[in-house]
Write a protein that binds this DNA or RNA. Structure first.
Length: 200
DNA sequence: GGCTACACCAATCCACAACC
DNA sequence: GGTTGTGGATTGGTGTAGCC
């Protein structure tokens, strides 16, 4: 597991966010998610222990409000921010670069998903063409009653296209993490393999 | 209006891996 | 070895939609 924040940088960034104003834990998670355009969001198990640790060190303090713990930076926390201003500037630069990298990766995965769907559609068309060809080449018993192959293929085509658009929309809206996309690709690959076996 | 089911929010605990 | 970052499981509170 590759850490997004290197050693000691998450706490620095939490101090930076709290320097903008008091916030509760969940709000900090959402802010980080927004900062990374939805491509990364720290889990609660990451944020709350850090906040507790910062409080023990006297860098933040919290007040209970409406069942929530609202954290606020202390003068000690601001002093650390001033002391590590250069490191914070570097961190901001790194985060900006990371967001660009993650966006590029999402784009690559999107292209890969589209490519896989395109391959599947091409193989289905080819399979349908061969099926039709086979029917012409050798005598076949009278076709069983039922829907013709073409309308079904069209429907299949439409569903694949709709799914491609759906995935593309989610990626553009940054509502899919790279891990989710990787999982989607693995699932899709499995489905493609199953369909290929079916078509053989 | 009251009850129930469900979704979401907020927080805690725990285990694990990587870093210093 | 201690610290830090991470994600998952879990819990408790709250709001809301649906049903009677």
């Amino acid at each position: 597991m590759t850490a997004v924040f290197s050693h000691g940088r998450l706490r620095l960034y939490l101090l930076k966010l709290l320097d903008d104003g008091p916030k509760h834990g969940y709000e900090l998670i959402r802010l980080l998610e927004d900062r990374f355009l939805g491509l990364y969001a720290p889990s609660a198990g990451t944020i709350y222990p850090r906040l507790q640790r910062l409080e023990v060190e006297g860098l933040v303090t919290h007040t209970a409000a409406g069942g929530r713990k609202v954290y606020e930076i202390t003068e000690g926390g601001r002093a650390e921010l001033r002391q590590r201003a250069d490191e914070l500037a570097t961190l901001e630069t790194d985060i900006t670069a990371s967001v660009q990298d993650l966006s590029a990766l999402a784009g690559e995965i999107q292209t890969e998903v589209r490519g896989s769907v395109r391959d599947l559609k091409r193989e289905l068309r080819e399979a349908a063409r061969q099926t039709r060809q086979t029917r012409w080449d050798r005598p076949v018993p009278p076709p069983a009653p039922g829907p013709a192959a073409s309308p079904l293929l069209t429907e299949f085509d439409q569903r694949l296209a709709a799914f491609t658009m759906e995935v593309g929309g989610l990626v553009r809206a940054h509502r899919l993490s790279d891990n989710q996309l990787r999982t989607a690709i693995r699932v899709l690959d499995g489905a493609l393999d199953g369909l290929r076996r079916l078509l053989r």
